[in-house]
């Protein structure tokens, strides 16, 4: 018997809301949106934690410029704080090494992090997910009960089909969808035209910000960027 599952509710009992950021394909901006929403919620006075569950390609630590930090041990793993938010990531343990994980390893690592992380009192736990409907999606549904899902889309046809699969799965399982953010909007093309029929909220669109790359690694610059300010408006709508 694996004992870890039995402790999950206790580990998450002081977390008020879990928002899992999902979407279609890699590169649509899930991690940047997770980080910017979390930073904005923190600046609004909420206690925020970020959990990077993109286990083979974590990136929240890069976005937050979190170098040379490591969790403390105190009857569990205490996530360190960066720019006012707690950050839990497998990167503390893999360092910069490639860590090729197959399905069961992904689930085991996810469960290990969830069973041993001591979050404390948190208003928003923002989860950065890998793309699509794979292991992590199923593990969040199974182990992080009460999660609300925020879906990141963009105008590309390549993204749309996967986003629709995500919406269909979450709807079929009767799980709460906070809504869709359309990222990297350029021109008239929009994925929302195809998504509006699913009866889920549209949280807003973000244009393609040419200078966003400069803000990666600098949380204050990210917050004050056009991207960060726009996500501040969206974050206010999530409260």
């Amino acid at each position: 018997m694996d004992p870890r599952v039995s402790i999950l509710d206790r580990r998450l009992c002081e977390v008020r809301r879990i928002i899992a950021v999902t979407g279609g394909k890699g590169g649509v901006g899930k991690s940047l949106i997770t980080a910017a929403l979390g930073l904005n919620l923190s600046r609004l006075g909420f206690r925020v934690a970020l959990l990077d569950l993109d286990l083979t390609s974590p990136s929240l630590h890069i976005i937050l410029g979190a170098d040379d930090i490591f969790p403390e041990e105190e009857k569990g793993i205490i996530p360190p704080e960066v720019a006012g938010v707690k950050l839990m990531s497998i990167i503390y343990f893999t360092a910069r090494n490639p860590s090729p994980l197959r399905g069961p390893d992904i689930s085991n690592a996810t469960l290990e992090l969830l069973a041993n992380t001591i979050w404390g009192e948190v208003d928003f736990l923002m989860v950065d997910m890998p793309p699509g409907v794979g292991d992590v999606m199923m593990d969040i549904i199974r182990w992080m009960r009460g999660s609300e899902f925020l879906i990141v889309s963009n105008p590309s046809k390549l993204v749309l089909e996967t986003v629709i699969k995500v919406i269909k799965l979450l709807t079929e399982l009767d799980l709460p969808i906070l809504g869709v953010i359309e990222n990297m909007k350029r021109g008239e093309r929009s994925s929302w035209e195809k998504l509006s029929g699913f009866g889920i909220p549209f949280l807003g669109e973000l244009p393609y910000f040419e200078d966003l790359e400069d803000a990666i690694g600098d949380p204050e610059m990210l917050l004050s960027s056009g991207f960060g300010r726009r996500l501040g408006e969206i974050a206010a709508g999530l409260i």
Binding site: P3, S6, I7
Partner: peptide, 18 residues
Amino acid sequence: MHEWSMAEAVIAAVIDEA
């Protein structure tokens, strides 16, 4: 101590099973 959080999990699981 990681040992402590794993021990908590074991005790919680035993109580559940019992």
